[in-house]
Amino acid sequence: MSIVIAICIVILAVAIVVGLVRVLTAKDMGSRAVVGDLVYFSAIGMLTFIGMHVSSSIVLDGIFLSSMVGILATIALSRILTRGYR
């Protein structure tokens, strides 16, 4: 089980690194916003697998709450893009 969890964590870490390279090379702000979203969801996945690795009892609660409040970061970024206008 721990090997499987390690493989998943490594894949998600590579996804975060690829996204951060994309942030460095992107020219427009919209791409940076969506890459920020990608890093957020990859970090949720990594936290889930780390919780499974240490036999935490709040794995499902953590992923449920973070998926519910994930919209706040995206909406904040989109408000920043439009300079506060809706």
Binding site: V4, I5, I7, C8, I11, L12, V14, A15, V18, L38, F41, S42, G45, F49
Partner: peptide, 9 residues
């Protein structure tokens, strides 16, 4: 898990 992670990647 690996399928989901690969889709994110």
């Amino acid at each position: 898990g690996i399928t989901g992670s690969l889709i994110v990647l």
